[in-house]
């Protein structure tokens, strides 16, 4: 009886109870996305259009990170892109892995990798002292 198994979306009631986490996650993707349009495309234009990556060297980065302004810009970009990407990949993994154990393992790996890269990136932005 495949017809009875169809979901009648017009009569479907929203689930009651539970947490609002998914709602906030959905909203976060919109807000962080708006910021990333400015931060990420801004970063791409600065590095690839207004400058050329062929000229990218140690001194270029050292001069950039000489000001707290650019360190803040880069840290915001790091934090928002990692969070936005991790939440996006969380949804992709949730949608495409049906095996419960495999899903738990892959999500754990994702969260671990994201936290490690966030710590690494933040450490680099704070600890960098120019040698030239």
């Amino acid at each position: 009886m495949s017809t009875n198994q169809r979901t009648d979306w017009a009569r479907r009631q929203p689930p009651t109870g539970g947490s609002n986490f998914e709602l906030y996650a959905w909203f976060f993707m919109r807000v962080s996305g708006l910021f990333l349009v400015l931060l990420a495309t801004g970063h791409m234009f600065i590095m690839h259009v207004f400058n050329d990556t062929l000229n990218l060297d140690y001194e270029f980065v050292a001069a950039r990170w000489d000001t707290p302004y650019w360190r803040t810009f880069d840290w915001l970009l790091l934090a928002l892109s990692l969070l936005h990407g991790t939440n996006g990949l969380r949804i992709v993994l949730h949608d495409n892995i049906s095996n419960q154990n495999l899903r738990k393992i892959s999500l754990s790996v994702l969260y671990f990798v994201s936290v490690m890269f966030f710590i690494l990136g933040t450490y680099v932005l704070i600890a960098f002292v120019s040698e030239v």
Binding site: D57, Y58, V61, G121
Partner: peptide
């Protein structure tokens, strides 16, 4: 980018 901590 993190490799920048290891020098030029």
């Amino acid at each position: 980018t993190a490799l920048i901590l290891l020098g030029p």
